[in-house]
Design a protein around this nucleic acid. Structure first.
Lengths: 226, 226
DNA sequence: CTCCTAGTATGAGATTTCTCATACTTAGTG
DNA sequence: CACTAAGTATGAGAAATCTCATACTAGGAG
């Protein structure tokens, strides 16, 4: 983690993300701009963060480490979004890990100094409530899909969700944790898609060849898609 | 759903659950007392509720119905707790179903009339934030456990969690949806516990005979138990 | 240039979990 | 009292998924 002293950049991020509108009073002036490198932790498992973060650029993942060594990847964070809000609100919460996937910039408010002020600001609280509510709904959807559908179905849906220009290019290690299956099994089903001719692998990644059957597989997963 | 016009009872529930302290202004006077029978819906799938509920007695379940006919039981609601807060906060949310397990009493505020007032009340918002935050953390824990551990381990943990006086007495239908497995498989593992001598079934229910090995099985599930 | 880490790949065999079929029991309802 | 819905139980076979082992590749760090 590194503090970035570049007011122009900070200002740019703030206006891109409408940072000032998150609060009822002018908190923007107190925010620091922080930078995190790939694989750094924004929040480390069970360590209470010192800032309330607002992700303005990059990508991160929220995950839960289980006692048997497995990791469950719960959610992806993409700008703009709060990070560390659970810990700000609830002194008793046990923080989950948030780790950087692509280099991140965050606007950050020191908790110690501004917690009281934030907890009395209805504009801020309303925004956090909505954010938490959507995040919870998303997490519930993901969890119930992981439980209720087979990996072929979920993977088809995930490929269609993350595809760019007909190419699927996600990291298998991460995807397996997100879809809640072993790496081995993910590769197995992926290989099956290739064998069936739905996908074809080339230098650019996995190329979607047969869209229709993938959509068909994904149909039940995606429907009821709030 | 039935409105209960019993001011004494309402007053009693309010003081039991510290209802008035949830708000910055006196909302208590506007709350109605409602009663729901077993299997009634407090919130029906995709139907926006007309009230913000506060469960003061009884038990209910939150679940997500998937397009393939399966239901994922996400969370149990026990007093005191909000119901319908996601819908109050976020106009875009797609409500999940909340169905009564044991007859419920709820204090209820009409959304149409008081939404604006509630969304400007920092005391209320703070309470909802904390509630949402804990609920989300709980849901995440449940989901990642369901993914990361085998049913024997999860069931052992669940038995120890819900046991009363050495007896396990939950409904298999519900538990299977909560633990994210088929009814058949739950019964299979349960029968295994009986065969191994961990449990013994009598008129009162499943009696815990060997606590130690159950605790051992549950250990990794329960550890990291925020 | 070498080492190390993260990521990709595949095989083989074992478990876990699912589907479907079929019965039986119990409590509530007309 | 008969009917119905919800819950309990068990068998058999199939599938989805896991564990473990083993190789190979690419990129960053020293």
């Amino acid at each position: 983690m590194q503090k970035i002293d570049d007011d122009d950049l900070k200002q740019q991020f703030m206006s891109e993300c409408n940072y000032e509108f998150l609060f009822g009073s002018d908190m923007a002036q107190h925010a620091e701009l922080l930078h995190f490198k790939v694989q750094e932790y924004i929040v480390e498992n069970l360590v209470r963060p010192k800032y309330l973060f607002y992700l303005v650029k990059g990508k991160a993942k929220l995950y839960d480490s289980l006692a048997n060594g497995k990791d469950a990847l719960i959610d992806f964070f993409t700008p703009p979004c709060f990070i560390g809000e659970m810990e700000l609100l609830d002194a008793k919460s046990a923080p989950f890990s948030v780790q950087v996937i692509d280099d991140c910039y965050c606007l950050a408010l020191p908790v110690a100094k501004y917690q009281a002020q934030l907890l009395a600001d209805p504009t801020f609280l309303r925004n956090v409530c909505i954010y938490l509510s959507r995040k919870n709904a998303r997490n519930i959807k993901t969890a119930s899909r992981n439980q209720g559908f087979t990996l072929s179905q979920r993977l088809a849906a995930f490929i269609l969700l993350t595809e760019h220009d007909g190419y699927y290019n996600e990291k298998h290690t991460q995807v397996s944790e997100y879809l809640g299956v072993s790496y081995r099994h993910l590769l197995y089903v992926l290989a099956e898609f290739v064998k069936t001719g739905y996908l074809k692998k080339d230098r650019q990644g996995y190329h979607i060849i047969k869209l229709k059957p993938l959509q068909q597989l994904a149909r039940e997963v995606t429907s009821s898609n709030s």
